[in-house]
Structures are given as structure tokens and as C-alpha cells.
């Protein structure tokens, strides 16, 4: 079984981002970049499927500028077999990414596609669902457990009401939630071996996709600074403030 897994290059989660002075975007100048954490969980799941003998090949794909080959190499060091880079310029919105991934899916014909549920930069949470719609494949989003069962995959989903387990016919789309697994770190020998693994580069045109834009980002501003609190004198005063100032109880 071939597994396709996606990785996105985003600002490292440890970095405290700042808005550009003109408010046009987040300032990415000299900022440490990394694999989106949810994508890393997706890679880990795919590699575990391979280690368990369920998957035969893990192909990692990333859409973005040339630098995202670094993230593909990291995924290869974590255990993926080969990489595909779809090279784009500037920002690409989820629908375009989903269309490009559809092109890759048609080329590769994987039995399972695993994506992160969302990326920590845009927080859109759309690409996996859009890819499901475009490819007409069933989708199991927010997965906290993935179990292959013959021609089906059972996906346990973290939903508001609790845990929901669904059974999807393969080929299928899965998006990973935080608790699906704990990703490993790549060992030094594996980092060195990853250099030699194949990495193919495609343009959107190669996949028959025109990069369009439907969304314009108007401004980016930091969250308002939290105001200092006060210490109330008594329970009565607290209740009074909750009722009359905050108006959260009546």
C-alpha cells in the first residue's frame, strides 16, 4: 500500500512571531522554519504504517517555494521513501494546494493520503477536506487513531461530543489531530541517508493547475495586550462585577 503524506513549511512553533511594521503580513525575515507540527504527526503515522508492514512506500509531498525542500528532506530523514516538491511562488491558498495535491494523487495513486488537520500559520483547516471533495475520496478528519482493516481504514476522530470512529473505503483521506502519535526525531545516520533519497520537482503547470487567488489578506495585527487585573475585596463585589460590568451572569 502506497501512502502519500503532505508537509508544509511554516514558522517553527517555538518562534514568537511579529507582524511587519506596515501590517501587511507576519514578518518571516530570518525566522526559523520547520515542518508544521500536524504534518509531522502525519509523517510519523505514515512511517509507522510502513514499519508495521502495512504500507510499502511512503511518498512525501510539499507545495511551496524552493526552501520547502528542507522540510521534505526532514520527512525523508524521519522515514519517508521519496519526495515530491510542487514549486510555487508566493502565498498559495488552500484550494490551490488541494488542486495541486489532487494532481499528485492522480500521478501517484496512493491508497491512503495523510495530511495535518491544519497548519499553525494560516489555521485554515481546509486543505484535507477540499482534497477529499476534489478527488471524491472519503475523508476522516481530526484523527486520533488510524487502523487499516483490509480495504478499509478505521479512523477515530476527536469531535466536540467525544470520540467518533468511522470506517472509510480505501483509497481515503485522513487528517491528523494532535494526539494521533508523538513524532520521533530523525537520527544523524538517517539525516545523512535522506540526502540520497529521490526528490522530484513539479510545477503547477505540470499538474495542469493554474495558480489563482480568491483571497486577499488585508492586514495582520498582533493581539491586543492583556490588561492588568484587579483584586476584588469580597465575593459580593465579584458577583456585582460579573453581573453589571462583565455581564456574564444575570
Amino acid at each position: 500500500m502506497k501512502v502519500l503524506v503532505t508537509v508544509k513549511r511554516v514558522v517553527d512553533y517555538n518562534v514568537k512571531v511579529r507582524a511587519k511594521a506596515d501590517g501587511s503580513d507576519v514578518d518571516l525575515n530570518n525566522v526559523k522554519m520547520a515542518i508544521n507540527p500536524f504534518c509531522e504527526i502525519a509523517v510519523e503515522e505514515a512511517v509507522r504504517l510502513k514499519e508495521a508492514g502495512t504500507a510499502t512506500e511512503v511518498v512525501v509531498v510539499s507545495v511551496g517555494a524552493k526552501q520547502c525542500q528542507e522540510q521534505i528532506r526532514t520527512a525523508l530523514a524521519l522515514g519517508a521513501d521519496r519526495g515530491i516538491h510542487v514549486e510555487t511562488e508566493g502565498a498559495v491558498e488552500p484550494l490551490v494546494v488541494a488542486k495541486l495535491l489532487k494532481g499528485v494523487v492522480e500521478k501517484e495513486e496512493p491508497r491512503l493520503v495523510i495530511l495535518g488537520k491544519q497548519s499553525i500559520d494560516g489555521d485554515n483547516n481546509q486543505t484535507g477536506q477540499m482534497l477529499g471533495a476534489l478527488t471524491n475520496m472519503p475523508q476522516g478528519t481530526f484523527a486520533s487513531e488510524v487502523a487499516i482493516d483490509g480495504d478499509k481504514v478505521n479512523v477515530t476522530r476527536e469531535v466536540d461530543a467525544g470520540m467518533q470512529t468511522i470506517s472509510l473505503n480505501l483509497p481515503a483521506i485522513v487528517t491528523s489531530d494532535l494526539r494521533l502519535n508523538e513524532p520521533r526525531y530523525a537520527s544523524l545516520p538517517n539525516i545523512m541517508k535522506a540526502k540520497k533519497k529521490p526528490l522530484d520537482v513539479f510545477s503547477p503547470a505540470d499538474l495542469g493547475v493554474e495558480v489563482t487567488s480568491h483571497i486577499t489578506q488585508l492586514s495582520v495585527a498582533p493581539p491586543a495586550e492583556r490588561q492588568a487585573g484587579i483584586i476584588v475585596e469580597s465575593v459580593e463585589q465579584l458577583v456585582d462585577k460579573l453581573k453589571n460590568e462583565a455581564k456574564v451572569i444575570s
Binding site: 520547520a34 528542507e70 528532506r73 526532514t74 530523514a77 530523525a186 539525516i191
Partner: peptide, 9 residues
């Protein structure tokens, strides 16, 4: 790039 990858991991 390999040095940066080593530092990251």
C-alpha cells in the same frame, strides 16, 4: 541544509 537539519533534530 544538512547542518541545520542536524541542529533541528
Amino acid at each position: 541544509e544538512e547542518h541545520h537539519a542536524w541542529r533541528d533534530q
